[in-house]
Design a binder for these strands. Sequence first.
DNA 1: AATGAATGAGTTTTCATTCAT
DNA 2: CATGAATGAAAACTCATTCAT
Lengths: 211, 211, 211, 211
Amino acid sequence: MAAPARKKPVKRRRSPIQSRGQATVDVIVEAAAQILARQGPAAATTNAVAARAGVSIGTLYQYFADREALLVEIGRRHVAEMQAVLAGALAGIDGLDLPAAVDRLVAAIVASHRVSPRLHQALHQSLARDHLDTIDAFEVAVEAMVRQALAARPELDLAAPELTATVLVRGLGGLIRTTIRREPERLDDPALAIAMRAMILGTLAGSRRGA
Amino acid sequence: MAAPARKKPVKRRRSPIQSRGQATVDVIVEAAAQILARQGPAAATTNAVAARAGVSIGTLYQYFADREALLVEIGRRHVAEMQAVLAGALAGIDGLDLPAAVDRLVAAIVASHRVSPRLHQALHQSLARDHLDTIDAFEVAVEAMVRQALAARPELDLAAPELTATVLVRGLGGLIRTTIRREPERLDDPALAIAMRAMILGTLAGSRRGA
Amino acid sequence: MAAPARKKPVKRRRSPIQSRGQATVDVIVEAAAQILARQGPAAATTNAVAARAGVSIGTLYQYFADREALLVEIGRRHVAEMQAVLAGALAGIDGLDLPAAVDRLVAAIVASHRVSPRLHQALHQSLARDHLDTIDAFEVAVEAMVRQALAARPELDLAAPELTATVLVRGLGGLIRTTIRREPERLDDPALAIAMRAMILGTLAGSRRGA
Amino acid sequence: MAAPARKKPVKRRRSPIQSRGQATVDVIVEAAAQILARQGPAAATTNAVAARAGVSIGTLYQYFADREALLVEIGRRHVAEMQAVLAGALAGIDGLDLPAAVDRLVAAIVASHRVSPRLHQALHQSLARDHLDTIDAFEVAVEAMVRQALAARPELDLAAPELTATVLVRGLGGLIRTTIRREPERLDDPALAIAMRAMILGTLAGSRRGA
DNA sequence: AATGAATGAGTTTTCATTCAT
DNA sequence: CATGAATGAAAACTCATTCAT
């Protein structure tokens, strides 16, 4: 059920001992993320990153064994940020009734995808297959969360709650990413949110044990 | 409604009307597609492509202005192939009742995504942003098709048929692509097809004018 | 009895098809050998070699997979040249009586070591352990030759002819190389040749079955 | 008679008279020697040396002006060690008769070459031409010693005692080093020691004034 | 004295692309 | 049209060395 997972370990290098080093790492990662988001993967050469970070190329390699390690670190931080946004937008959802909870979920997932969508896509394009799980981690987490939420509502009477969670989350995620890529402005259209709610509620209804 | 779309034109070179040239183009495109699918974007250098095609690098540039043009052509053919598979799997769907039609649709979309999924992903990773619409064309076409199909069934009484089509198609597509990438073997699981049907039918029911 | 020999194969690249390519290879190899001999291993960067050869760096890598492959090729040619000189200087040795033959041999080995001694040493310094056998090949060949020559003179009555050959050749070679490195001008000293003859004849006499 | 010898001076930094500094120097030198011997010249970067020595890179440069200075110091110590082994193995040789003395000498030279042969070779490969005399110093000393020993035995009646010493020592040294590099295990073969004795005694006999 | 973060010139190597034959 | 030798800008990465703390 799990993915192949022969991911070769990401080679980090010197974990900074002094606080100065930590600041440098941040500067580098942010510079790289910016270039990636604004100019795309091809522009994010290690030299360009170092230059924009205001750091020498040697310094970059003090902290990252190679370009891929830098990309992975960006991915990790990006996922963490998305998760933070999601968690924030999801606060207090437990007390809500189903329709309200679904609205919250939709809003939360959309909000989390608004975090640097260009970076998100650039990471998808530049990470090696071995490391794509770094960004997949976000959706994996969301799936777990939704799975749990569905389990907590037995009144939904789902035939296969876990599968339903998977289908919902992946479907929703794909929909949002495709829309961001092809029609970014449309993400603000309230009609879309309504349609997504309809999709979720409908899917839940259609996934009942009896159906 | 559409994306920014300042796509720089794809420079193709002499369109070979003669059969000899056509054959050469085919050989090149197939060689490139194979490398892309089997070894990934990084391995698909123009020299490697020419070598595998059994053609000199000069000949490659006789037919393609640059590497990107070659990638775009591969994308076009890949999309055409997916569409062909889709069309084949969809034959006779018009006469079916809704549940049967939905099953057909699910099967058809899944089938079309089985066409070189590795190539599909490689294209996603290697095409420049300007040219991603080449592969997006597939889903655009499916959306149009589904939009039409929904319009032909007024008894569904949809509040926003076009939007529902969009949501369904993009959601389904994203779900399938994510699953292929992360759990490829799961695509064969009949439970998944059932869940997808539930999602579609549920979404249609949940998108009624009254809901 | 043989060396470990897990030598990783030398990656050559395109063997030139056109004669132009062969000429290019020659130019590159000669440029590299010159830099190596005159300025030492550190100066023989691939860029410096390409520049001196009047060729672009890309061309160098068309013919040599990496720097090491170039070094190995230089080594091969150097050894071939040494062997050619040796063979030339050894012509007609078979008919001579022992003292005359020994003189010839000494002169021949000395002469072969006069072929680019600086290059010889630079190769010793720059070749990876895996590839040192490339230049060792010369002495291996000389050992074989001398072994055969000793075998052809049973009147020498050697207790261990093969070992004697080994000792003689390696001793002689080391003596010559050390002398070249530390007192190059001394190689012209006739007294040295006389001393080497004494060493050889003495060693042969001292290695008799009875001794 | 000597080599060109325009050796640029080895810049050492503060000679640490205090024991703390001396200990640090020792640690650094030993770390470097170990890396050199085990992993070869390429692995012996200054940073790697400092790391293995458990010292900061800054400290390394406190004691050595540059990498070359460190290498030279390693060379000096290595030579000292070889000489110590040689001296130890040679103790009491003066009282022996010729054959016994020769056996002693052979054993002693072999023993001294067993001191870190990998390091010996690594030094040969990494020292700049200007500093090769650092390790050549060993053989220079041996030559002096043998020259003296031969002078002390006028009964040998040598035509050119000094030259004979040179030829013997360099030949022997080259033979041993070549054998170590190409067939290390053979150094333990008693037959080789016998052959070397034959070579020495034979050479002495063949180098008589009358010969 | 010791530290270790930072430097950046310099190295190897790749690969899309051109053009003389 | 086809060939393939040649190009060279540019990429990733290394490592000896410096210097502020």
